[in-house]
Design a protein around this nucleic acid. Sequence first.
DNA 1: GCGATCAGGT
DNA 2: CACACCTGATCGC
Length: 603
Amino acid sequence: MSSFAGRMKEYPNMSLDRFDRENLHARAYFLSHCHKDHMKGLKGPQLKRKLKFSLTVKLYCSFVTKELLLSNPKYAFWKDHIVALELESPTLITLIDEASGEREELVVTLLPAGHCPGSVMFLVEGAQGTVLYTGDFRLAKGDASRIELLHSGSRVKDIKSVYLDSTFYDPRFYKIPSRETCLHAIRGLVQDWVSRSVYHTVWLNCKAAYGYEYLFTNLGDEFHTQIHVKSLDMFKKMPEILSHVTTDRATQIHACRHPKDEEFVPASRLPCGSSASDGTPLSIISIKPSTMWFGERTQRTKVIVRTGASSYRACFSFHSSYSEVRHLPAYLSVCLGLLKSMCRDVSSSAVIYRPLGTLKRTRPEQHTHDVDCADWLFEGADLAPVRKRVMMQEATPTTLPNRPDEPLPLTHIPLITGDYMDCTESNDDDEEERDLEEEERGGERDEGSVSNSGTPPRWEEFFTTEILTESQTSQPHSCSHTSPSHSTLTGSQTPELFVDDSAKLPSPSIPLSAGRGLSQAESMLIQSEDRCQGDALTNLDAGGEESGSHTHQSEPTESQVSSDFDIPSTPDSHTPGPDDLSDLYRRLAAGEEVITRTGSQSL
DNA sequence: GCGATCAGGT
DNA sequence: CACACCTGATCGC
């Protein structure tokens, strides 16, 4: 559940991804993507009533999000109040207070977020500066550098605040295998199974949410088949997806779901009840896409885990990992630092801005896409080269000495490890699967777009992080909905909407370093602030990697990782006790250098 | 009957 | 671990 209260400090007249409470009084609404936890209040009767009497209030989102939203009849009343915007097309939006007539002009740009179809980030430029609201996102390192409108000339724009998806902003989630790595592994597993006979069927046990579509399109392409799903309605106007899904149950790959009935046995039947026409029993395996992550010291591990006789779990994530999340503000802060100090050349080494090559840019053909290419759904996610690389890597179709109906032995599942080969395993929850580490390690690395050769400043030296918590951001009185006066709003809002945790804790990062507290605060404000420089607290970067060393660069190389993130690995982490914390606080207050190893012992 | 909230499940 | 839901129970209107 997103904990973001819906408003940004700089532009409190717009509401994003929250539509209840104070947000009912916003002058404009923004929906980053079509997931329910970002749509709170969106079908509420109060908002519905407001729309009836308003001529100016609109909901801004991408075309795809609009389509997905309106495919649900519960949101049909929005139809005449939605303004769909093209990606990467700055749009002037005037926020009007209908009572006073007061106007406020903003330039809003939708940037691809790679989270699910239609998902975007909002770049807002106006009198209060440029801010970026990411919504949920999955961007790999380097993707931000390919987003043209984050840049101005050869530099990154001076971004005042970043409102960040912090779902996995915790070092425990240091690494999540890349999209292509996971896709390749799933392809291999599916290949092994469906090639045995026409009765061998795969059920993709996907959740009821948008975001798996690229899995469907890629598997559909690979196996020249369509994937059985429950409904096609929402994809009516999306030929790329529509061409890869079907309601015809006679296919070897299913992603159908059944609302009820969980005594369903994967090995015997599918949620749709499909069976072979000649009465031959289907041989079914289930693959459950779910997030797997690896600690900063994880050497390498599997992206597919066998969980039962005929069931598997496959790595799949809608969200960026810790290192990926961290990369975004780091990338932006590098350039902010440059703007401040004017002492480093951004174009020479550290961050090279590359024109969008694989990132599809302008798209007048939005509604007449090439049916074979669903990449536009995940602009920025670099899918096009992914697929090509995956194809080329698939040089070793596994031979299958076992009987056709035997579940796949794990050793025959093609696995890719090149994406995270430098890590050591930290989440060893899988004693059932032992040595699969025989895979060749020659995989490419997909995040080499940022080098460390330019000694960019550490982002935490230029930014502070403030965790927005639900209780602190949703106070009914925290928002002035009676007055258009910005000063009133800003004055009362600042301390409440954007609470300063340091008032209560020695460091805003302590809860994070303990591996706790983030579940209540998935959205995070990162600000560029001069005043944070020299403030000892700001060196306690969220995540608690308080190494004390400021000589290393803002983004650690893989080899630096262990020193930079020397925190307990997942199985050993535990909640710090009061004594642990008070001791830590005391040492911090005394200005002692807190060695993280010590911290991890006490924490 | 509806919405909001919570618990519990996948 | 976590997600993005779904269902059902309960409460208040």
